[in-house]
Computed example of a mutant assay.
Amino acid sequence: MSIEQRIHAHYAGLSPQERRAADLILDHIDDLALYSSAELAEMSGVSRATLSRLYRHLGFGSFTELRETARTLRQQGVPLGPDGDPELSQHLDQELRNLRKVLDPAGDDRTARAVSDLAGARTVLVVGLRNSHPVALHLKQQLQQAREGVRLAPLPGQTLGEELVDVGPGDVVVLLGFRRRPSGFERLVSFCAQTGARTLLIADGTARRHASSVDLWIECPLGSVGPFDSYAAAMSLVAVLADGVLAAAGEDGRRRVSRTAEVYAELDELDLR
């Protein structure tokens, strides 16, 4: 049961003081992880002993357990955060931390290895479900300008089976697995690994348990000071990978970019004014 469900289930049996504290928790459920038990007691005007009784009535051993439940929800991608709008400087600092983590030049060679795999593959299948789909779509669009044989899955109205049936040795499957993934993601990772294709997983830390099942794992943080995840680092990683693949393609890649631009012009698809 969620924290709200527990409060609603026990509310009728709470004392007036406990109800006051429960009301405060419900009012601050989005940023509960930011407060201490003493702060909640002061804000609600009840004693810490009253709060302790409330925690027990809700099935929590302590405030720490209650707060960890709230933090777990945030880590799972539930949009929880402070009531106020964070300062832009806080957003900037967090974005820089995310970028440094995924693009640290002093780190290992995972990005270079990913570029090598993507440039040398027979075909590249980019898979992105739910929150991961926009990043997957952008990666597919960028890679497609640098090399041929790049596909996106799932397509609208399609399931994954149609796209995976031809995947095999010599191919690369890029799995975008950012948090709040569909429940069948683990099975998808396992299936892709069994095809014989090279598998690359790009995701936040909640997908770390799948890292041992793929050939290459790149952790891409989504940390944000606000309620919603930030995909700025993920989109920056897409740019780095696409730039690397284009550079590896050499003259063939440059010709493909030029021909793509010619097709845009022939179809009058882009407003370049």
Rank of each mutant, 00 (worst) to 15 (best):
S183H: 14
P105C: 13
E39V: 01
G61Y: 12
D83W: 01
L96T: 13
D171W: 06
R208G: 10
C192V: 10
L54C: 03
V245Q: 00
P134L: 09
E95G: 09
Q5A: 11
A249G: 10
L99A: 10
E163W: 13
L237E: 08
G84N: 09
V46K: 03
T111M: 07
T195G: 03
A203Y: 13
E219V: 01
P227V: 01
T111E: 06
Q194G: 11
R259F: 05
P227S: 05
S183Q: 15
R97D: 14
A12F: 09
G177Q: 12
R254Q: 14
P82E: 06
A203S: 15
I202H: 14
G205R: 11
Q5H: 09
V46L: 07
A106H: 04
R100L: 13
T260R: 15
T64H: 11
R97M: 12
L272V: 13
L96G: 13
S15C: 07
V150H: 03
L155Y: 00
L164R: 00
G196T: 02
D271M: 12
G61E: 14
L176T: 12
D23E: 10
L24R: 07
S52Q: 07
V189S: 00
V214F: 14
S230R: 03
Q75G: 07
E219Q: 11
G13S: 04
R19G: 03
E148W: 11
S212N: 11
F60P: 08
G61M: 14
Q94S: 09
P16L: 11
D83N: 02
L125I: 06
G120Y: 01
R181W: 04
E186L: 09
R179T: 03
P79D: 00
G61L: 14
A12K: 09
N131K: 15
P86D: 08
E4S: 06
D31T: 00
Q142K: 11
R130I: 10
Q94G: 06
G77L: 00
T64I: 11
V172E: 07
G161R: 04
L270W: 10
R48P: 00
R147S: 05
F178K: 09
L188S: 01
P134H: 14
T260Y: 15
